[in-house]
Simulated scan of single mutants.
Amino acid sequence: MHNISFPHFLTVTVLNDWDWTSRIIFFSFALSAYLLTIVLNAALIMIIAFEKALHEPMYIFLCNLCVNDLCGTTGFYPRALVYLLTETNRISFEECIVQCLAIVMYATGEFTNLSVMAVDRYIAICQPLRYHSIMSPFAVRSLVTFIWIFPFFIGVLAISLALKHPLCRYDMNRLFCEHLTLLNLACKQDIFQGIINGFIYISKAVFFVFVLMSYLKIILACRKSKVNREKFYSTCVPHLISFMITTCGLSDSLLTRFKAETLSNIASTFLSVIILTFPPVVNPVIYGIKLGPIRAKILYIFKSPRINNL
Rank of each mutant, 00 (worst) to 15 (best):
Q189I: 01
I91S: 08
T11S: 11
S264F: 01
E110S: 05
L263A: 04
K52F: 05
V144R: 01
S203V: 08
S304G: 09
S22F: 04
T262G: 09
F278V: 15
N113I: 00
Y300F: 11
L62T: 08
H239E: 09
S160T: 05
V209I: 13
C248I: 12
V211P: 02
V211Y: 00
S32G: 13
S264H: 10
F150M: 12
T73D: 09
N64F: 03
S5H: 13
T247L: 06
T235N: 07
E178Q: 13
W148S: 04
P284W: 01
L81M: 11
S92D: 08
L81N: 09
S214C: 15
V206S: 11
N309E: 11
A107N: 08
W18T: 08
W18I: 07
K290R: 14
L163W: 01
F146G: 04
N184K: 15
I38K: 07
L65K: 02
F111P: 00
R174M: 12
W148F: 14
E110I: 09
S22E: 12
T13V: 09
V116A: 04
F138C: 12
C177S: 14
I48A: 02
N64C: 15
D252V: 10
S136D: 10
I147E: 02
Q127Y: 04
I218V: 10
F278R: 12
F50K: 15
M117C: 07
A267V: 13
A221I: 08
W20V: 13
A102E: 11
A158Y: 00
I47W: 00
L70K: 03
A186I: 03
G249W: 00
E261D: 11
P7H: 04
T88I: 11
H8N: 15
G288E: 02
A158E: 04
V119L: 11
H132E: 12
Y83T: 07
T86P: 11
T11G: 05
I147F: 00
R229C: 12
L36C: 14
A49C: 10
Y59C: 04
V98N: 10
C126A: 12
I195Q: 08
F61M: 08
G292T: 14
K297Q: 14
Y77Q: 08
P151D: 03
L310H: 13
I307N: 09
A205S: 13
N3D: 14
L180C: 06
I286N: 06
T181V: 14
L182R: 02
H179W: 10
I103Q: 05
G109T: 01
I134W: 10
G155E: 01
T88V: 12
A205K: 08
R257H: 11
A43F: 05
S251I: 15
W20Y: 08
S160L: 15
I38F: 04
N197W: 01
F207N: 02
G249L: 03
S242H: 01
G288D: 06
M244Y: 06
I294D: 02
F146K: 06
A260R: 10
F232M: 06
C66H: 03
K52P: 13
Q193A: 04
L240R: 02
E230N: 13
